[in-house]
């Protein structure tokens, strides 16, 4: 593999030196483009108190292409499907090379605070979120407790 671009080195250094509150992103020992990410559930959200594991991969043409990010921890959220794939505009068509790992992770954290059932990825979850938000939030808390609080 080609040498790691300066941009990735810089970003990694900065992530380690000044971590974003509530988010940790550590590069894999054997692959500097693969990050082990842990996002804490935002306060006042059904995910509060949970620790959510994600994986983040920087593709060959990063930053021209968006990083690939996926939840590993199961999560009950209308914009995240059962495989952990995330529906977020900046990871798709709204990606800009000026965005960074840091901004992406912050956006994901914001998505946990503000689910958007009108642009769903997990249809059943989004449906319930629209029809019966109280029950949906109860489910989300239940899942958080079950899957994101083990350790």
């Amino acid at each position: 593999m080609a040498a790691l671009p300066r941009r990735i080195i810089k970003e990694t250094q900065r992530l380690m030196a000044e971590p974003v509150p509530g988010i940790s992103a550590v590069p894999d020992e054997s692959n500097a483009r693969y990050f082990h990410v842990i996002v804490t559930g935002p306060e006042d959200s059904p995910f509060e108190g949970g620790l959510f594991k994600l994986e983040l991969f920087l593709p060959e043409d990063y930053p021209m292409s968006a990083p690939k990010v996926r939840f590993i921890t199961k999560i009950y959220h209308p914009n995240i499907d059962k495989l952990g794939r995330i529906c977020l505009d900046i990871l798709k068509d709204k990606w800009s090379p000026a965005l960074q790992i840091r901004t992406v992770l912050l956006s994901i954290q914001a998505l946990l605070s503000a689910p958007n059932p009108d642009d769903p990825l997990a249809n059943d979850v989004a449906e319930l979120w629209k029809i019966n938000e109280i029950e949906a939030i109860r489910n989300a808390k239940e899942w958080t407790r079950k899957y994101a609080m083990d350790n």
Binding site: D61, M64, S65, S96, P97, A98, L99
Partner: peptide, 24 residues
Amino acid sequence: CWTTYVEVKISEGQSTEITCMAQN
């Protein structure tokens, strides 16, 4: 960076719709 960016965009099938690299 512009060059790499435009190369990636063209290989994705874009041309006249390529925008500035800055967000938004």
